[in-house]
Simulated scan of single mutants.
Amino acid sequence: MSERVWAWRAMLAAAGVHGAVGVAAAAAASHGENARNLAAIAAIALSNGPALLALALAGRGRVLSVAATILAIGTAVFIGDLAMREWLGQGLFPGAAPLGGVAMIGGWLTIVLAAVTGRAGRLQNLVKVSAEPKAGMPHSGPR
């Protein structure tokens, strides 16, 4: 299996795991009285999981691959730390949540970098194709 295929599968798997964890955490939070960590896990996983899915399906290029990797790892560390605090009473390791949070921010900013530098790969091509007017149709989007 090529490195590119492996990375694509890993990104899809991370998106699926984050989505599943988010739904499970939301369900658990709805049944608990003091479920602050579970609600945070649900919010983070359910916001970053779809982003990873979009990057896996449409994002190509080194910069977006780096962004997805940073986002996936940061999310896993952050929600892992909150889960450990919820169920075991102690964090993953000292500073895990802030480290995961900074990584998530870094992943999102790397997506911005890909857009600003024009290194959005296949995603950029999809946007370019969808912005082109169809024959006989007036163009209303940005040029």
Rank of each mutant, 00 (worst) to 15 (best):
G121S: 02
G101N: 03
V63D: 08
D81Y: 00
L99K: 03
I105K: 07
A40D: 06
G22D: 02
V63S: 04
L92F: 02
R122K: 13
L88F: 15
A42E: 14
G59R: 00
A83R: 03
D81M: 00
M84F: 15
H139S: 15
H18A: 12
L38I: 04
G136T: 11
K128D: 06
L57S: 05
A72K: 00
A120D: 14
I79F: 08
R119F: 06
V77T: 09
I111A: 11
A25L: 02
A45D: 08
I44E: 08
A24W: 03
A120R: 04
R119C: 06
T75E: 06
L88W: 12
N34D: 11
A10E: 01
A135C: 05
D81Q: 01
T110C: 02
G101W: 01
L109Y: 05
A26Y: 04
A45K: 03
A115C: 11
A58D: 09
V129M: 12
E86N: 07
Q90A: 11
G91T: 14
L92S: 11
R60N: 10
P98W: 01
G106T: 08
W108K: 04
A7D: 05
V127C: 07
W108L: 06
G16S: 09
G118D: 12
F78C: 04
S140N: 14
P138H: 01
H139W: 13
Q124Y: 03
T75Q: 08
G106W: 02
M1T: 12
